[in-house]
Design a protein around this nucleic acid. Structure first.
Length: 223
DNA sequence: CGCCAGGCCGTGT
DNA sequence: ACACGGCATGGC
């Protein structure tokens, strides 16, 4: 499936952001939220000059809420973003690059500490690891879940970890041989392609061994 | 007007 | 250990 998608859409090499910190902010804001809404919030933060660790540390929380209002869930998300900055301050001297260095050496440990933060579940943790920190973390989103379930690769009774394991198995060769940054590039490309076809409206994007791939992902209920 | 969006969390069984 | 609703807002 990955090969078909690369042929059809790739390469993406992805996450629409100018800085690693902007990736983190986007990862929080896009939770169950359309990316166009996130863009508006990011623009607000940028215009206010607070799209940085220092900026979010200094701004009053009620102002932060107003800036991210377009993305919804503003009470939770404002508190969660502040908690991330506090986490960076407490353990990494407020330096996102220090967290990145730690993640490249001990990704599972960093993932565990990210999951302990409010507003960070498995997808957000893996998105931060992969797109902000460059660690080879497989990101499982709602679109990938639909692809897996509708192709009956796994039963409807899924768990994040099961789908993640399945998706990682598709890259077994790279996991065994490729360097971590190489594997991260594949995971990046893979998830970016998933989102690309998810956001687009096409019902069917490829045929893989006679099987139509990834149709009607816009339909959340049934396909 | 109803459904959906690149989830997460608290609560009830 | 699950399932289920709430969280907020904007686009279509």
């Amino acid at each position: 499936m990955y090969d078909h998608l690369v042929e059809r859409f790739g390469p993406q090499q992805w996450w629409p952001a100018k800085t690693a910190f902007e990736v983190v902010v986007g990862a929080y804001l896009t939770q169950n939220t359309a990316w166009t809404s996130v863009e508006r919030s990011i623009a607000n933060l940028e215009a206010r000059g607070v799209l940085s660790v220092e900026g979010l540390r200094a701004i009053p929380e009620d102002e932060l809420r107003e800036l991210i209002r377009p993305s919804g869930f503003m009470l939770r998300k404002a508190a969660a973003l502040r908690a991330f900055v506090a986490f960076l301050d407490a353990h990494y001297g407020g330096d996102l690059d220090a967290l990145r260095r730690h993640a490249l050496g001990a990704a599972p440990e960093v993932r565990h500490s990210l999951l302990a933060l409010p507003g960070v579940g498995p997808e957000t943790a893996d998105a931060i690891l992969l797109y902000a920190l460059g660690a080879p973390a497989m990101v499982v989103d709602e679109y990938l879940r639909r692809i897996v379930v509708r192709h009956r690769l796994l039963p409807e009774q899924r768990k994040y970890a099961e789908i993640q394991t399945l998706a990682q198995q598709a890259f077994a060769r790279d996991r065994a041989r490729a360097k971590p940054e190489e594997l991260a590039r594949h995971y990046n490309e893979f998830h970016a392609l998933i989102v690309q076809i998810g956001k687009s409206n096409c019902r069917r994007v490829a045929v893989c061994e006679g099987c139509p791939l990834a149709w009607d992902l816009k339909n959340a209920t049934r396909s």
